[in-house]
Simulated assay, not measured.
Amino acid sequence: MDQQEFGQYIYNLRKKKKMSIRMLEDLSGVSNSYISQIENGIRRPSPDVLKKLYAPLDISYVELMVGAGHWSEDELLEAFNENEVFKEQVDLEEFLNKNNITFKGVIITDHDKKLIKFYLETLCSDRTKED
Rank of each mutant, 00 (worst) to 15 (best):
G7H: 04
K104L: 10
G105N: 07
D112V: 04
P56N: 06
E82M: 09
D48R: 09
E73S: 14
K98R: 14
V106H: 15
L24P: 05
N99L: 06
E84D: 14
V106Y: 14
E73P: 00
N12K: 12
Q3W: 00
K51D: 10
E63V: 03
P45L: 04
V106S: 13
T102M: 09
G29P: 04
R127C: 08
Q3M: 06
I10D: 00
L13I: 08
L50T: 07
E63R: 11
D48I: 01
K129H: 11
L76V: 09
P47C: 01
Q4A: 09
I108W: 06
V106D: 14
H111V: 11
I10S: 03
S31A: 08
K52W: 06
R22I: 13
G41F: 04
G69R: 02
E82D: 13
C124V: 07
Q4P: 00
F118N: 11
E93P: 00
T122F: 09
Q3S: 06
Q4T: 08
L64E: 01
K51E: 12
D131I: 02
I38M: 06
Q4H: 12
L64P: 00
E78W: 08
T122W: 04
I101W: 00
S46C: 05
I101A: 01
Y61C: 02
I108K: 06
M65I: 05
L24I: 12
E94Q: 13
S125I: 09
S72I: 00
E25L: 08
F95L: 15
F103E: 09
N12M: 06
E63C: 01
F118V: 06
K117L: 15
E75N: 12
V49R: 07
L27V: 03
D126F: 11
E88Q: 14
L53E: 05
I59D: 05
T102Y: 14
R43K: 15
H70W: 11
I38K: 03
M1P: 03
I107G: 10
L50F: 09
L13V: 11
H70I: 05
L76T: 12
K15E: 13
N32L: 12
E88G: 01
M65C: 09
I21Q: 15
R127E: 12
Q4D: 03
L53F: 10
L57W: 07
N40A: 11
D126W: 01
V49G: 04
L115N: 13
P45T: 06
R127T: 03
E39N: 02
G29R: 06
V49E: 07
F103Y: 15
L123K: 09
C124G: 10
F103V: 14
F103C: 11
S31G: 08
E78T: 14
L13Y: 05
I42D: 05
G67H: 02
G29I: 02
R127I: 06
N97C: 08
L77D: 10
Y34E: 01
F86T: 10
M23Y: 01
S36W: 12
L57F: 08
A55Q: 15
S46R: 10
K117H: 09
E93I: 08
L50S: 01
D112W: 06
L64I: 01
I108S: 02
K16P: 00
L27M: 13
I107W: 08
F118P: 00
